[in-house]
Design a protein around this nucleic acid. Structure first.
Length: 893
RNA sequence: AGGGCCUUAGCUCAGUUGGUAGAGCGCCACCCUUACAAGGUGGAUGUCAUCGGUUCGACCCCGGUAGGCCCUACCA
C-alpha cells in the first residue's frame, strides 16, 4: 500500500495527464437524451483571437465548479464550449499580419482576404482551447461551436429573415457612430465616452442684412461646413429680433436660417447653437424637427468631402487647425476657452467616433424589449446578485434601435440582395437567383456583415442545432445558468433574452450569475497598456491550476470586483501541498488495511470508534451539509473556505495528530478502525474539493484505498445521501473533543506565554468540577499528555495551588481547571502578566453583560433565551475570573 | 446630471432574518517534534468612515455628511 509520493505536490507532473485521462474516458460528455436531470451551461464564447486572461480564468472556474458539482450530483451536466469570430478584432489582427507582408486588404479583394482570415483561424483558433484545458474546463468538446459554422449561419439567416418579415429589421439612412479607421458603423455600446480636454471656440457669424454678428460656441469648428441652421431659445431676449433672419457661413458662403427651439440651453456658451444635423445626434433630431438640410461633410475614411471647399481631403483634426487659423485671420473667432467634454472613442481602434449619416440595417428593439423586460421583472430570469436587475431594466427602458450592419468582410454577410433593374430588396434564407420584385437576374448581395453580437444573441440555441428541432434543445434549453461579467449585460445578456424569447418562445437561461472584474493588487483594471495583466497560464505553470482556481473561488463572495494577489495564490498553493501531505501520511500508514467491499461502508460499529473518530465524522457531516448549501446559493467563497478550514484546521491539525498514537501503536484492531476513518474522510475531502481543485483531487482519489471509478464521476458528498457513514458520528463525542481541544490549547497557551520550550515536559493537574468532565478527561488522558507534551497528568484536585498557573475552562455546562505548578520551571512574573491581561479582558466583558442584565428594559423586552444566554455567559466568565484572581493572589504570596 | 456600489485588523476581504467583532496573508516569539519549514505552537492588532434617528440592544435597519469606485446620459 505504501506509495512513494514526493513531499511536495508538483502540479506539473499531474495536470496534463489527468486532463487527458478525463478526456479519454469521455467524462465531459453529456447525453442528448437521458434519464438524468439536465443541467446546462453555455460558455460565453471567447474571441478566436484571444488569449486566456484572468477574467476568463474566473469566469470559467465558476462555471466549471457548478458543472462539476452538478455532474457529481448525478445531473446530465452539459457545458458547451465555442469561440466567437469577433468580426472587428479578427479582421484587424489579420490585416496587420498582411500589412507586414506588404499586402493590403482592399487590393486583395474580399474573397482572397477572407481566405487569409480562415487560414489564420485554422492556425491560431485553437490557442485558447488549449489554455482552457490547462485550467481544467470540463467542457463537452464534441459540442464545440464556432460562430461562423454552417449551422450557426443558417440560424443567423433564419432570424434575419424572420425579423425582416415582421418589420422588426429595417434599412434606414440614419446618423450612426462611425469609426473612420474601420470605415464602418459601430453600435452605441462600442463607443466609450472619455472626458477629453478641448477648446470651446466662439465664432461670430455675420447676420445677413444687418451689421450685427451672432456669436455661437462650438467644440468642433470644422463642422460648420455642415451647418444648416443656427438655433436659439425662443424666449431668449437677446436674440428675439434675429429669429427668422439668415446668416451666411464664412468662406463657403452658404446661407442658413436662424431658428428657435426650446432644446437650446440659454446658459451654455452664448445661448446660440450651430446646428449640424448630419454630424451630431442632437442636431440630427433638431434637423428632422425643423426640416433642415442634412449636409454630409465626411468621406468614409473620415476626411472632408466635396462639400468642404478648400479643405476637401483633409482629416477632421487637420481641417480644424486650418479653419481656426483662417477664422482668426478673418476675426471670426472672438474667443477660445479651454473646455472639458466627453468625446466618443471607438472601443476597438481608440479613434474618435464621428457621427455619420449612412444607410444601415437596424433591429427595431421596441417590441423585442418588452417581453425581455417582463421575464426579468417577474423573475422568470433571476439575476445573481439581484442588484443587476436594476441595471438591466434601466437599459431596457432606454434602449434604442440596434444598428446591426458593419462595413467589414469577416462575419455573417447580410442576406439581402439588391436588384439592378428595380428598387426591390430581396431578403432570403437561401441565396436567391432572381429579384423578388421584377424577377430580374441582375441582383447582388449586400456587401456588409452583421454585428458580431447578432450571432452571439442566438448562441444558446444556435449551438444546439436550431433551427432544426433537436433533442439537445429539448433537453438543455433553457440553460440552467449564464455566468458572465457585468460588462456585457447589454451587449450580450439582453440580446440573448430578446432573441430567445422571440425565436424559441422561452428564456435562454433561468439564472444569470454576474461576477466582478479582476483587478490587480492595487485595484486597477488589468490591461495591456498598463502592463499589469497577470497571465493565468504563467500562474498555472508556477503554482498549479488548482491553486489558481481555489484562489479565485475563495474570493468570489459577492459578485464585486476582486483584486488578485500572488501572495494569496501562494497561500492556496500551500493548501494543496497540505492536502497532498496529509494523503502521504495517511497512505504510508495503511499497512494491513483492507478496504470494505463496495456499498458496505459501515464495517465498524460505534463501539469500536474512538471519540476523535466520532467527532471527525460528525464534523464531516456538517461540512457536507454546509458546502452544498453554499453552492446552491452560489456563495463560492463560503464553500471554498469551509472546505479549507475543515481540511486544514480540523482534519490535519487535530484528527491526524489524534490518529498517530493509534497508527504507531500495537492495537491492530484499533489501527484498522483509524485507517478506515482516514480512508473514508480523505475520500470525502477530495470529493468535496473536486469542483474547486479538480486535478489534485482526482490524483489523490486514484491513490486512495477506498474509491470508485473516478472522482469526477463519483457522487458529491451530500449529508442526506451519506447517512450510513455519517451515522457513525456523534454530537456528544464532538462536544467531548471540543473540551479536550480546549484543555490542550490552554496548556499550550500557558507554555507559550511563560516561554517554556516546546520540548520541555512538565506535570499538569486537571481538576474537573463535574462527573461528565471527569469522565471526558479520563477517556482522553493519554491524548492530552501527548499533544500538550506533558510529563504526567493527574485528573484530580491538587492539594496546594501555590505558585501554580491556573486556566479555568468553561464549555457548555462543563467546568475544568487546568493547573500547572510553575515552581522551578519559570519565573512567575510572566504568568502574573498573562493572568492580569486575561482578567482585564474578561472584566470588560463582564461589565458589558452586566450593563445589559441590569437594564430593566432589556429584561422586559429581549427574548427569554437571549437573556438566559447572557446570564449563563456572565456566570461562566465570573467563575473564570474568580479562579484567575485567586491564582494571581497565590502567585504573589 | 441621474443611478448603483463601497468605507470592518498593517493588507485583501467575510460577517444572510439586529443579541459579547471573524478569516487569509503579513507581523512578533519559540520550535527542523519521522505527513508537510509551501510546516508546527503560542501571541499582538479594530471608537466596524463620520453624524444623527429607530430599538432594551445597531457592523447590520432609516436619514444626513465626507472619501473612493462604477454605470448611464451628456450643454453645442
Amino acid at each position: 500500500m505504501s506509495e512513494n509520493l514526493s513531499d511536495r505536490y508538483n502540479p506539473n507532473d499531474v495536470e496534463d495527464r489527468i486532463y487527458k485521462y478525463w478526456e479519454d474516458q469521455n467524462y465531459f460528455a453529456a447525453e442528448d437524451q437521458s434519464t438524468k436531470r439536465p443541467y446546462s451551461v453555455i460558455l460565453p464564447p471567447p474571441n478566436v483571437t484571444g488569449f486566456l486572461h484572468m477574467g476568463h480564468a474566473l469566469d470559467h472556474t465558476i462555471q466549471d465548479v457548478l458543472v462539476r458539482w452538478k455532474r457529481m450530483q448525478g445531473f446530465n451536466a452539459m457545458w458547451l464550449p465555442g469561440s466567437d469570430h469577433a468580426g472587428i478584432a479578427t479582421q484587424a489582427v489579420v490585416e496587420k499580419d498582411l500589412r507586414k507582408q506588404g499586402k493590403d486588404r482592399l487590393e486583395m479583394g474580399r474573397e482572397a482576404f477572407l481566405d487569409e482570415v480562415w487560414k489564420w483561424k485554422q492556425t491560431y483558433g485553437d490557442r485558447i482551447y488549449s489554455q482552457m484545458k490547462r485550467l481544467g474546463d470540463s467542457v463537452d468538446w464534441k459540442r464545440e461551436t464556432f460562430t461562423l459554422d454552417a449551422g450557426v449561419s443558417k440560424a443567423v439567416r433564419k432570424v434575419f429573415v424572420h425579423l425582416y418579415k415582421k418589420g422588426w429589421l429595417y434599412q434606414g439612412k440614419k446618423l450612426v457612430n462611425w469609426s473612420p479607421p474601420l470605415q464602418s458603423a459601430i453600435s452605441d455600446l462600442e463607443v466609450v465616452h472619455k472626458d477629453t480636454k478641448g477648446s470651446l471656440y466662439h465664432l461670430a457669424y455675420p447676420v445677413d442684412g444687418t451689421d450685427k454678428t451672432l456669436i455661437i460656441a462650438t467644440t468642433r469648428p470644422e463642422t460648420y461646413l455642415g451647418d444648416s441652421a443656427v438655433c436659439v431659445h425662443p424666449d431668449d431676449e437677446r436674440y428675439q429680433k434675429l429669429i427668422g433672419k439668415t446668416i451666411t457661413l464664412p468662406v463657403i458662403n452658404r446661407q442658413i436660417p436662424i431658428i428657435a427651439d426650446e432644446y437650446v440651453d440659454r446658459e451654455f456658451g452664448t445661448g446660440a447653437l450651430k446646428v449640424t444635423p448630419a454630424h451630431d445626434f442632437n442636431d440630427y433630431e433638431l434637423g428632422k424637427k425643423h426640416n433642415l438640410d442634412f449636409i454630409n461633410i465626411l468621406n468614409v475614411d473620415g476626411t472632408l468631402n466635396e462639400n468642404c471647399g478648400p479643405w476637401q481631403g483633409l482629416k477632421t483634426q487637420e481641417a480644424r487647425k486650418k479653419i481656426v487659423e483662417e477664422f482668426e485671420d478673418k476675426n471670426i473667432i472672438v474667443k477660445i476657452e479651454p473646455h472639458q467634454h466627453a468625446v466618443g472613442y471607438c472601443d476597438r481602434t481608440g479613434a474618435i467616433v464621428e457621427p455619420f449619416l449612412s444607410k444601415q440595417w437596424f433591429v427595431k428593439t421596441k417590441d423585442l424589449s418588452t417581453p425581455a423586460r417582463h421575464v426579468v421583472e417577474n423573475e422568470t430570469i433571476q439575476f445573481v446578485p439581484e442588484q443587476w436587475t436594476k441595471t438591466y431594466l434601466h437599459w431596457m427602458n432606454i434602449i434604442e434601435d440596434w444598428c446591426v450592419s458593419r462595413q467589414l468582410w469577416w462575419g455573417h454577410r447580410i442576406p439581402a440582395w439588391y436588384c439592378d433593374d428595380c428598387d426591390q430588396v430581396t431578403v432570403s434564407e437561401d441565396d436567391p437567383s432572381q429579384c423578388e420584385g421584377c424577377g430580374g437576374k441582375n441582383i447582388h448581395q449586400d456587401e456588409d456583415v452583421l454585428d458580431t453580437w447578432f450571432s452571439s444573441g442566438l448562441w444558446p440555441f444556435s449551438t444546439m442545432g436550431w433551427p432544426q428541432d433537436t433533442e439537445a434543445q429539448k433537453t438543455f434549453y433553457p440553460t440552467s445558468v449564464l455566468v458572465t461579467g457585468h460588462d456585457i449585460i447589454f451587449f450580450w445578456v439582453a440580446r440573448m433574452i430578446m432573441m430567445g424569447l422571440e425565436m424559441k418562445g422561452d428564456v435562454p437561461f433561468r439564472k444569470v450569475y454576474i461576477h466582478g472584474l479582476i483587478r490587480d493588487s492595487q485595484g486597477r483594471k488589468m490591461s495591456k497598456s498598463l502592463g499589469n495583466s497577470i497571465d493565468p497560464v504563467e500562474m498555472i505553470e508556477e503554482y498549479g491550476a488548482d491553486a489558481l482556481r481555489f484562489t479565485l473561488m475563495s474570493q468570489m463572495a459577492t459578485g464585486k470586483d476582486l483584486k488578485f494577489s500572488v501572495q494569496r495564490l501562494e497561500g492556496y498553493r500551500n493548501f494543496m501541498n497540505k492536502i497532498w501531505n496529509a494523503t502521504r501520511f495517511s497512505l504510508s500508514n495503511m499497512e494491513g488495511f483492507k478496504a470494505p467491499a463496495e456499498g458496505t461502508e459501515a464495517t465498524v460499529s460505534l463501539s469500536q470508534l474512538t471519540t476523535a473518530d466520532q467527532w471527525l465524522i460528525y464534523q464531516t457531516g456538517l461540512v457536507e451539509k454546509e458546502v452544498n448549501q453554499y453552492l446552491e446559493e452560489m456563495r463560492f467563497s463560503d464553500a471554498a473556505n469551509r472546505i479549507y478550514s475543515f481540511t486544514w484546521h480540523e482534519f490535519c491539525d487535530w484528527y491526524l495528530e489524534f490518529s498517530k498514537p493509534v497508527l504507531y501503536g500495537e492495537d491492530l484492531k484499533q489501527k484498522q478502525v483509524t485507517q478506515l476513518v482516514l480512508a473514508q474522510t480523505l475520500n470525502r475531502i477530495v470529493r468535496l474539493l473536486h469542483p474547486f481543485a479538480p486535478f489534485i483531487s482526482e490524483e489523490i482519489y486514484q491513490k486512495l484505498p477506498i474509491k470508485g471509478e473516478a472522482c469526477i464521476v463519483d457522487h458529491y458528498p451530500e449529508y442526506d445521501k451519506d447517512k450510513t457513514w455519517l451515522g457513525l458520528g456523534s454530537e456528544e463525542a464532538s462536544f467531548e473533543m471540543e473540551l479536550v481541544k480546549e484543555v490542550i490549547t490552554a496548556i499550550r497557551n500557558i507554555r507559550g506565554e511563560n516561554k517554556i520550550k516546546p520540548g520541555e515536559k512538565f506535570d499538569v493537574w486537571l481538576t474537573p468540577k463535574d462527573d461528565k468532565s471527569q469522565k471526558i478527561l479520563g477517556n482522553n488522558k493519554s491524548e492530552i499528555i501527548r499533544l500538550a507534551t506533558l510529563k504526567e497528568c493527574s485528573i484530580s484536585e491538587r492539594s496546594s495551588l501555590k505558585k501554580c498557573a491556573v486556566a479555568p475552562i468553561r464549555l457548555g455546562d462543563s467546568e475544568v481547571d487546568v493547573v500547572i505548578p510553575l515552581e522551578g520551571l519559570v519565573d512567575l512574573d510572566k504568568e502574573v502578566s498573562r493572568l492580569k491581561k486575561l482578567i482585564e479582558k474578561q472584566e470588560k466583558d463582564i461589565q458589558k453583560i452586566n450593563g445589559k442584565l441590569n437594564n430593566e428594559r432589556f429584561l422586559a423586552n429581549a427574548p427569554e433565551d437571549v437573556v438566559e444566554a447572557d446570564k449563563q455567559l456572565l456566570a461562566s466568565i465570573t467563575s473564570k475570573v474568580d479562579e484567575m484572581r485567586q491564582s494571581l493572589l497565590r502567585l504573589s504570596e
